[in-house]
Design a protein around this nucleic acid. Sequence first.
DNA 1: GTCTATAAATGGATAGAC
DNA 2: GTCTATCCATTTATAGAC
Lengths: 207, 207
Amino acid sequence: MAEKRNRSLSVEKRDGIIAKAGELFIKNGFHAVSMDQIATAVPVSKPTLYNHFASKEELYKAVMEVRCNALADIFEETLKGGTGIRTTLIRIGDHFLSRVLSPESIALYRVMIGESGNFPELGRIFYDAGPSRLRAVMIDYLKAQDKAGVIKVPDPELSAFCFINMVKGDAQMRALLNVAKGPAASVRAKIVEHAVDIFLKGHGFKV
Amino acid sequence: MAEKRNRSLSVEKRDGIIAKAGELFIKNGFHAVSMDQIATAVPVSKPTLYNHFASKEELYKAVMEVRCNALADIFEETLKGGTGIRTTLIRIGDHFLSRVLSPESIALYRVMIGESGNFPELGRIFYDAGPSRLRAVMIDYLKAQDKAGVIKVPDPELSAFCFINMVKGDAQMRALLNVAKGPAASVRAKIVEHAVDIFLKGHGFKV
DNA sequence: GTCTATAAATGGATAGAC
DNA sequence: GTCTATCCATTTATAGAC
Protein backbone atom coordinates (compact mmCIF):
# COMPACT_ATOMS: atom_id res chain seq x y z
CA MET A 1 0.00 0.00 0.00
CA ALA A 2 2.70 2.35 1.07
CA GLU A 3 4.57 1.22 -1.99
CA LYS A 4 1.67 2.10 -4.21
CA ARG A 5 1.31 5.51 -2.68
CA ASN A 6 4.98 6.20 -3.04
CA ARG A 7 4.96 5.07 -6.60
CA SER A 8 2.07 7.26 -7.61
CA LEU A 9 3.61 10.12 -5.76
CA SER A 10 6.75 9.57 -7.75
CA VAL A 11 4.80 9.43 -10.98
CA GLU A 12 3.10 12.67 -10.11
CA LYS A 13 6.46 14.24 -9.46
CA ARG A 14 7.78 12.97 -12.73
CA ASP A 15 4.81 14.43 -14.56
CA GLY A 16 5.31 17.69 -12.75
CA ILE A 17 8.91 17.77 -13.83
CA ILE A 18 8.06 17.06 -17.44
CA ALA A 19 5.39 19.74 -17.44
CA LYS A 20 7.45 22.50 -15.88
CA ALA A 21 10.64 21.60 -17.73
CA GLY A 22 8.62 21.66 -20.92
CA GLU A 23 7.45 25.20 -20.29
CA LEU A 24 10.95 26.38 -19.57
CA PHE A 25 12.66 24.56 -22.45
CA ILE A 26 10.10 25.67 -24.97
CA LYS A 27 10.22 29.23 -23.80
CA ASN A 28 13.99 29.58 -23.54
CA GLY A 29 15.67 26.72 -25.35
CA PHE A 30 17.93 23.98 -24.13
CA HIS A 31 21.06 25.85 -23.10
CA ALA A 32 19.33 28.81 -21.55
CA VAL A 33 17.61 26.66 -18.94
CA SER A 34 19.52 25.13 -16.05
CA MET A 35 18.67 22.13 -13.96
CA ASP A 36 18.59 24.44 -10.97
CA GLN A 37 15.90 26.54 -12.53
CA ILE A 38 13.84 23.49 -13.31
CA ALA A 39 14.27 22.06 -9.83
CA THR A 40 13.25 25.34 -8.27
CA ALA A 41 10.27 25.78 -10.56
CA VAL A 42 8.73 22.34 -10.14
CA PRO A 43 9.56 22.48 -7.16
CA VAL A 44 11.78 19.55 -6.44
CA SER A 45 15.37 19.03 -5.43
CA LYS A 46 18.08 18.48 -7.94
CA PRO A 47 18.94 14.92 -6.90
CA THR A 48 15.30 14.03 -7.49
CA LEU A 49 15.62 15.41 -10.97
CA TYR A 50 18.62 13.24 -11.60
CA ASN A 51 16.89 10.32 -10.03
CA HIS A 52 14.20 10.49 -12.70
CA PHE A 53 16.37 11.54 -15.61
CA ALA A 54 19.96 10.54 -16.11
CA SER A 55 21.02 13.87 -17.57
CA LYS A 56 19.79 17.17 -18.86
CA GLU A 57 19.78 15.75 -22.38
CA GLU A 58 17.58 12.84 -21.35
CA LEU A 59 15.15 15.13 -19.62
CA TYR A 60 15.02 17.37 -22.67
CA LYS A 61 14.35 14.48 -24.99
CA ALA A 62 11.62 13.07 -22.76
CA VAL A 63 9.98 16.45 -22.48
CA MET A 64 10.08 17.19 -26.18
CA GLU A 65 8.77 13.82 -27.17
CA VAL A 66 5.73 14.41 -25.00
CA ARG A 67 5.20 17.90 -26.40
CA CYS A 68 5.53 16.77 -29.97
CA ASN A 69 3.01 14.02 -29.62
CA ALA A 70 0.63 16.42 -27.94
CA LEU A 71 0.71 18.37 -31.21
CA ALA A 72 -0.66 15.40 -33.07
CA ASP A 73 -4.21 16.56 -32.79
CA ILE A 74 -6.24 16.14 -35.77
CA PHE A 75 -7.37 17.54 -39.03
CA GLU A 76 -9.54 14.62 -40.00
CA GLU A 77 -12.63 16.19 -38.50
CA THR A 78 -12.21 19.35 -40.54
CA LEU A 79 -12.76 17.26 -43.65
CA LYS A 80 -16.19 16.13 -42.54
CA GLY A 81 -19.42 17.98 -43.00
CA GLY A 82 -18.20 19.02 -46.42
CA THR A 83 -20.37 21.38 -48.40
CA GLY A 84 -18.11 21.39 -51.40
CA ILE A 85 -14.42 21.49 -52.06
CA ARG A 86 -13.96 25.24 -51.79
CA THR A 87 -15.62 25.46 -48.41
CA THR A 88 -13.77 22.40 -47.19
CA LEU A 89 -10.37 23.68 -48.28
CA ILE A 90 -11.05 27.03 -46.69
CA ARG A 91 -12.02 25.32 -43.48
CA ILE A 92 -8.90 23.15 -43.49
CA GLY A 93 -6.69 26.08 -44.42
CA ASP A 94 -8.05 28.35 -41.76
CA HIS A 95 -7.88 25.70 -39.08
CA PHE A 96 -4.36 24.84 -40.07
CA LEU A 97 -3.13 28.39 -40.29
CA SER A 98 -4.54 29.46 -36.95
CA ARG A 99 -3.04 26.35 -35.37
CA VAL A 100 0.38 26.77 -36.89
CA LEU A 101 0.48 30.41 -35.83
CA SER A 102 -0.58 29.78 -32.26
CA PRO A 103 2.01 30.90 -29.71
CA GLU A 104 2.49 27.33 -28.47
CA SER A 105 3.08 26.00 -31.94
CA ILE A 106 5.49 28.77 -32.88
CA ALA A 107 7.43 28.31 -29.67
CA LEU A 108 7.73 24.58 -30.23
CA TYR A 109 8.81 25.00 -33.86
CA ARG A 110 11.39 27.51 -32.74
CA VAL A 111 12.97 25.24 -30.19
CA MET A 112 12.84 22.19 -32.42
CA ILE A 113 14.53 24.03 -35.26
CA GLY A 114 17.06 25.70 -33.04
CA GLU A 115 18.13 22.47 -31.40
CA SER A 116 17.77 20.20 -34.41
CA GLY A 117 21.52 20.18 -34.85
CA ASN A 118 22.04 18.78 -31.35
CA PHE A 119 19.00 16.50 -31.23
CA PRO A 120 18.47 15.09 -34.71
CA GLU A 121 16.06 12.35 -33.63
CA LEU A 122 13.67 14.91 -32.23
CA GLY A 123 13.30 16.65 -35.56
CA ARG A 124 11.99 13.43 -37.03
CA ILE A 125 9.61 12.85 -34.12
CA PHE A 126 8.27 16.37 -34.43
CA TYR A 127 7.88 16.19 -38.17
CA ASP A 128 6.06 12.88 -38.00
CA ALA A 129 3.76 14.07 -35.23
CA GLY A 130 2.94 17.44 -36.80
CA PRO A 131 3.54 18.45 -40.40
CA SER A 132 3.48 14.90 -41.67
CA ARG A 133 -0.04 14.22 -40.46
CA LEU A 134 -1.67 17.07 -42.28
CA ARG A 135 0.18 16.13 -45.42
CA ALA A 136 -1.22 12.59 -45.25
CA VAL A 137 -4.75 13.85 -44.70
CA MET A 138 -4.44 16.30 -47.58
CA ILE A 139 -3.10 13.68 -49.97
CA ASP A 140 -6.02 11.37 -49.27
CA TYR A 141 -8.50 14.16 -49.73
CA LEU A 142 -6.97 15.33 -52.98
CA LYS A 143 -6.89 11.81 -54.35
CA ALA A 144 -10.56 11.38 -53.57
CA GLN A 145 -11.46 14.68 -55.22
CA ASP A 146 -9.44 13.72 -58.26
CA LYS A 147 -11.18 10.38 -58.48
CA ALA A 148 -14.55 12.08 -58.17
CA GLY A 149 -13.59 14.33 -61.06
CA VAL A 150 -13.91 17.55 -59.09
CA ILE A 151 -10.34 18.64 -59.76
CA LYS A 152 -7.38 17.20 -61.63
CA VAL A 153 -4.47 16.21 -59.37
CA PRO A 154 -1.77 14.32 -61.25
CA ASP A 155 0.66 14.51 -58.32
CA PRO A 156 -1.24 14.56 -55.03
CA GLU A 157 1.87 14.75 -52.88
CA LEU A 158 3.32 17.80 -54.58
CA SER A 159 -0.08 19.41 -54.72
CA ALA A 160 -0.64 18.82 -51.02
CA PHE A 161 2.61 20.60 -50.29
CA CYS A 162 1.60 23.43 -52.56
CA PHE A 163 -1.68 23.92 -50.79
CA ILE A 164 -0.26 23.77 -47.31
CA ASN A 165 2.55 26.15 -48.06
CA MET A 166 0.45 28.63 -49.98
CA VAL A 167 -1.75 28.87 -46.92
CA LYS A 168 1.21 29.30 -44.61
CA GLY A 169 2.68 31.94 -46.85
CA ASP A 170 5.26 33.98 -45.02
CA ALA A 171 3.21 34.23 -41.86
CA GLN A 172 4.85 31.32 -40.12
CA MET A 173 8.38 32.37 -41.00
CA ARG A 174 7.73 35.90 -39.86
CA ALA A 175 6.39 34.62 -36.57
CA LEU A 176 9.36 32.26 -36.16
CA LEU A 177 11.76 35.11 -36.79
CA ASN A 178 9.84 37.27 -34.34
CA VAL A 179 9.31 39.84 -37.07
CA ALA A 180 5.58 40.14 -36.67
CA LYS A 181 2.69 38.81 -34.68
CA GLY A 182 0.33 36.52 -36.53
CA PRO A 183 -2.19 38.29 -38.76
CA ALA A 184 -5.65 39.13 -37.49
CA ALA A 185 -8.43 36.65 -38.18
CA SER A 186 -9.81 38.76 -41.01
CA VAL A 187 -6.45 38.95 -42.75
CA ARG A 188 -5.96 35.25 -42.21
CA ALA A 189 -9.25 34.53 -43.90
CA LYS A 190 -8.19 36.60 -46.88
CA ILE A 191 -4.90 34.76 -47.19
CA VAL A 192 -6.63 31.41 -47.07
CA GLU A 193 -9.30 32.34 -49.60
CA HIS A 194 -6.72 33.67 -51.98
CA ALA A 195 -4.65 30.50 -51.70
CA VAL A 196 -7.67 28.26 -52.14
CA ASP A 197 -8.80 30.08 -55.24
CA ILE A 198 -5.41 29.86 -56.92
CA PHE A 199 -5.14 26.25 -55.90
CA LEU A 200 -8.53 25.32 -57.31
CA LYS A 201 -8.09 27.25 -60.52
CA GLY A 202 -4.61 25.78 -60.86
CA HIS A 203 -6.12 22.30 -60.67
CA GLY A 204 -8.82 22.85 -63.24
CA PHE A 205 -11.74 23.42 -60.91
CA LYS A 206 -14.83 24.69 -62.70
CA VAL A 207 -17.02 26.99 -60.67
CA MET B 1 53.45 54.54 -39.93
CA ALA B 2 53.67 52.23 -36.99
CA GLU B 3 50.25 53.45 -36.06
CA LYS B 4 48.89 52.53 -39.44
CA ARG B 5 50.40 49.08 -39.28
CA ASN B 6 48.97 48.51 -35.84
CA ARG B 7 45.61 49.69 -36.93
CA SER B 8 45.41 47.43 -39.96
CA LEU B 9 46.67 44.58 -37.86
CA SER B 10 43.87 45.26 -35.45
CA VAL B 11 41.33 45.42 -38.23
CA GLU B 12 42.59 42.13 -39.55
CA LYS B 13 42.19 40.63 -36.12
CA ARG B 14 38.72 42.01 -35.82
CA ASP B 15 37.79 40.50 -39.16
CA GLY B 16 39.31 37.22 -38.09
CA ILE B 17 37.22 37.25 -34.94
CA ILE B 18 34.04 38.00 -36.83
CA ALA B 19 34.74 35.28 -39.34
CA LYS B 20 35.58 32.53 -36.86
CA ALA B 21 32.93 33.53 -34.36
CA GLY B 22 30.46 33.48 -37.22
CA GLU B 23 31.33 29.92 -38.10
CA LEU B 24 30.96 28.79 -34.52
CA PHE B 25 27.77 30.69 -33.74
CA ILE B 26 26.07 29.56 -36.90
CA LYS B 27 27.07 25.99 -36.41
CA ASN B 28 26.23 25.72 -32.72
CA GLY B 29 24.07 28.64 -31.66
CA PHE B 30 24.66 31.40 -29.19
CA HIS B 31 24.69 29.59 -25.88
CA ALA B 32 26.62 26.57 -27.04
CA VAL B 33 29.66 28.65 -27.97
CA SER B 34 31.90 30.14 -25.30
CA MET B 35 34.19 33.10 -25.53
CA ASP B 36 37.02 30.74 -24.68
CA GLN B 37 36.27 28.61 -27.70
CA ILE B 38 36.17 31.63 -29.96
CA ALA B 39 39.42 33.01 -28.55
CA THR B 40 41.14 29.68 -29.02
CA ALA B 41 39.79 29.21 -32.53
CA VAL B 42 40.71 32.61 -33.97
CA PRO B 43 43.32 32.44 -32.30
CA VAL B 44 43.43 35.43 -30.03
CA SER B 45 43.38 36.02 -26.32
CA LYS B 46 40.19 36.66 -24.45
CA PRO B 47 41.00 40.23 -23.41
CA THR B 48 41.51 41.05 -27.08
CA LEU B 49 38.06 39.72 -27.75
CA TYR B 50 36.64 41.98 -25.09
CA ASN B 51 38.68 44.85 -26.36
CA HIS B 52 36.92 44.64 -29.71
CA PHE B 53 33.49 43.69 -28.45
CA ALA B 54 31.99 44.78 -25.18
CA SER B 55 30.23 41.51 -24.51
CA LYS B 56 29.29 38.18 -26.00
CA GLU B 57 25.95 39.63 -27.05
CA GLU B 58 27.62 42.48 -28.90
CA LEU B 59 29.94 40.12 -30.69
CA TYR B 60 27.02 37.93 -31.65
CA LYS B 61 25.03 40.83 -33.01
CA ALA B 62 27.98 42.16 -35.00
CA VAL B 63 28.64 38.75 -36.45
CA MET B 64 25.06 38.05 -37.39
CA GLU B 65 24.53 41.41 -38.96
CA VAL B 66 27.46 40.75 -41.26
CA ARG B 67 26.21 37.28 -42.12
CA CYS B 68 22.69 38.46 -42.81
CA ASN B 69 23.79 41.17 -45.16
CA ALA B 70 26.03 38.72 -46.95
CA LEU B 71 22.84 36.83 -47.76
CA ALA B 72 21.43 39.82 -49.54
CA ASP B 73 22.71 38.72 -52.89
CA ILE B 74 20.44 39.15 -55.68
CA PHE B 75 17.56 37.82 -57.66
CA GLU B 76 17.23 40.74 -60.00
CA GLU B 77 19.52 39.20 -62.58
CA THR B 78 17.44 36.04 -62.76
CA LEU B 79 14.61 38.14 -64.14
CA LYS B 80 16.62 39.30 -67.10
CA GLY B 81 17.07 37.44 -70.35
CA GLY B 82 13.44 36.44 -70.13
CA THR B 83 12.14 34.06 -72.78
CA GLY B 84 8.64 34.03 -71.44
CA ILE B 85 6.98 33.91 -68.09
CA ARG B 86 7.10 30.16 -67.59
CA THR B 87 10.83 29.95 -68.23
CA THR B 88 11.47 32.99 -66.10
CA LEU B 89 9.49 31.71 -63.15
CA ILE B 90 11.21 28.35 -63.36
CA ARG B 91 14.56 30.06 -63.39
CA ILE B 92 13.68 32.21 -60.39
CA GLY B 93 12.17 29.29 -58.54
CA ASP B 94 15.10 27.01 -59.12
CA HIS B 95 17.63 29.66 -58.20
CA PHE B 96 15.69 30.51 -55.09
CA LEU B 97 15.13 26.95 -53.97
CA SER B 98 18.74 25.89 -54.39
CA ARG B 99 19.84 28.97 -52.51
CA VAL B 100 17.42 28.57 -49.66
CA LEU B 101 18.39 24.93 -49.26
CA SER B 102 22.13 25.53 -49.26
CA PRO B 103 23.83 24.41 -46.06
CA GLU B 104 24.90 27.97 -45.25
CA SER B 105 21.41 29.31 -45.67
CA ILE B 106 19.82 26.55 -43.61
CA ALA B 107 22.35 26.99 -40.83
CA LEU B 108 21.73 30.73 -40.71
CA TYR B 109 17.96 30.32 -40.72
CA ARG B 110 18.28 27.81 -37.91
CA VAL B 111 20.28 30.09 -35.68
CA MET B 112 18.20 33.15 -36.45
CA ILE B 113 14.99 31.32 -35.62
CA GLY B 114 16.41 29.66 -32.55
CA GLU B 115 17.69 32.91 -31.09
CA SER B 116 14.91 35.18 -32.29
CA GLY B 117 13.44 35.24 -28.80
CA ASN B 118 16.64 36.64 -27.34
CA PHE B 119 17.65 38.88 -30.25
CA PRO B 120 14.46 40.29 -31.77
CA GLU B 121 16.23 43.01 -33.78
CA LEU B 122 18.22 40.40 -35.64
CA GLY B 123 15.13 38.66 -36.91
CA ARG B 124 14.10 41.89 -38.58
CA ILE B 125 17.55 42.45 -40.07
CA PHE B 126 17.61 38.94 -41.41
CA TYR B 127 14.13 39.14 -42.84
CA ASP B 128 14.83 42.44 -44.54
CA ALA B 129 18.11 41.21 -45.97
CA GLY B 130 16.81 37.88 -47.19
CA PRO B 131 13.17 36.87 -47.61
CA SER B 132 11.99 40.43 -48.02
CA ARG B 133 14.14 41.09 -51.07
CA LEU B 134 12.83 38.27 -53.14
CA ARG B 135 9.30 39.23 -52.22
CA ALA B 136 9.85 42.77 -53.52
CA VAL B 137 11.36 41.51 -56.76
CA MET B 138 8.50 39.07 -57.27
CA ILE B 139 5.85 41.67 -56.64
CA ASP B 140 7.32 44.00 -59.24
CA TYR B 141 7.58 41.22 -61.74
CA LEU B 142 4.02 40.05 -61.20
CA LYS B 143 2.68 43.58 -61.51
CA ALA B 144 4.47 44.01 -64.82
CA GLN B 145 3.13 40.73 -66.15
CA ASP B 146 -0.35 41.68 -65.05
CA LYS B 147 -0.07 45.02 -66.76
CA ALA B 148 1.17 43.33 -69.92
CA GLY B 149 -1.87 41.08 -69.79
CA VAL B 150 0.11 37.86 -69.58
CA ILE B 151 -1.53 36.77 -66.32
CA LYS B 152 -4.15 38.21 -64.00
CA VAL B 153 -2.80 39.20 -60.58
CA PRO B 154 -5.36 41.07 -58.51
CA ASP B 155 -3.23 40.86 -55.36
CA PRO B 156 0.47 40.81 -56.26
CA GLU B 157 1.66 40.59 -52.68
CA LEU B 158 -0.38 37.56 -51.76
CA SER B 159 0.44 35.96 -55.08
CA ALA B 160 4.15 36.54 -54.58
CA PHE B 161 3.95 34.74 -51.25
CA CYS B 162 2.03 31.93 -52.88
CA PHE B 163 4.65 31.43 -55.51
CA ILE B 164 7.61 31.57 -53.18
CA ASN B 165 6.09 29.19 -50.70
CA MET B 166 4.84 26.72 -53.25
CA VAL B 167 8.38 26.48 -54.50
CA LYS B 168 9.77 26.04 -51.02
CA GLY B 169 7.21 23.40 -50.24
CA ASP B 170 8.24 21.35 -47.25
CA ALA B 171 11.84 21.10 -48.34
CA GLN B 172 13.05 24.01 -46.26
CA MET B 173 11.22 22.95 -43.13
CA ARG B 174 12.53 19.42 -43.44
CA ALA B 175 16.03 20.72 -43.81
CA LEU B 176 15.60 23.06 -40.85
CA LEU B 177 14.34 20.21 -38.70
CA ASN B 178 17.23 18.07 -39.86
CA VAL B 179 14.77 15.50 -41.14
CA ALA B 180 16.20 15.23 -44.63
CA LYS B 181 18.92 16.59 -46.81
CA GLY B 182 17.81 18.85 -49.61
CA PRO B 183 16.36 17.07 -52.65
CA ALA B 184 18.55 16.23 -55.63
CA ALA B 185 18.65 18.72 -58.49
CA SER B 186 16.32 16.60 -60.62
CA VAL B 187 13.70 16.40 -57.88
CA ARG B 188 14.09 20.10 -57.24
CA ALA B 189 13.38 20.83 -60.86
CA LYS B 190 10.22 18.76 -60.70
CA ILE B 191 8.99 20.61 -57.63
CA VAL B 192 9.60 23.96 -59.24
CA GLU B 193 7.91 23.06 -62.53
CA HIS B 194 4.90 21.71 -60.71
CA ALA B 195 4.60 24.87 -58.64
CA VAL B 196 5.03 27.13 -61.66
CA ASP B 197 2.35 25.32 -63.61
CA ILE B 198 -0.20 25.52 -60.82
CA PHE B 199 0.69 29.14 -60.27
CA LEU B 200 0.30 30.09 -63.92
CA LYS B 201 -2.91 28.16 -64.40
CA GLY B 202 -4.21 29.62 -61.16
CA HIS B 203 -3.58 33.11 -62.54
CA GLY B 204 -5.30 32.55 -65.84
CA PHE B 205 -2.25 32.00 -68.01
CA LYS B 206 -3.14 30.77 -71.48
CA VAL B 207 -0.55 28.47 -73.03
C1' DG C 1 12.80 8.39 -2.95
C1' DT C 2 13.91 12.71 -1.32
C1' DC C 3 16.50 16.10 0.77
C1' DT C 4 20.91 19.42 2.23
C1' DA C 5 25.29 20.32 1.00
C1' DT C 6 28.96 20.25 -2.04
C1' DA C 7 32.20 18.75 -5.58
C1' DA C 8 34.40 19.67 -10.15
C1' DA C 9 34.30 22.11 -14.20
C1' DT C 10 33.23 25.88 -17.12
C1' DG C 11 31.04 30.16 -18.05
C1' DG C 12 31.72 35.47 -18.88
C1' DA C 13 34.50 39.08 -17.76
C1' DT C 14 38.79 41.78 -15.86
C1' DA C 15 43.67 43.45 -13.65
C1' DG C 16 47.96 44.54 -14.65
C1' DA C 17 52.37 43.75 -17.23
C1' DC C 18 54.30 44.71 -21.66
C1' DG D 1 46.37 46.80 -28.37
C1' DT D 2 47.68 42.49 -26.78
C1' DC D 3 48.90 39.01 -23.60
C1' DT D 4 49.15 35.83 -18.90
C1' DA D 5 46.86 34.89 -15.10
C1' DT D 6 42.85 35.07 -12.42
C1' DC D 7 38.19 36.39 -10.23
C1' DC D 8 33.66 35.11 -9.34
C1' DA D 9 29.17 33.33 -10.61
C1' DT D 10 26.96 29.51 -12.38
C1' DT D 11 26.79 24.99 -14.41
C1' DT D 12 26.04 19.83 -14.32
C1' DA D 13 26.20 16.22 -11.40
C1' DT D 14 26.91 13.53 -6.92
C1' DA D 15 27.71 11.95 -1.69
C1' DG D 16 25.57 10.96 2.31
C1' DA D 17 21.82 11.76 5.84
C1' DC D 18 16.93 10.68 6.53
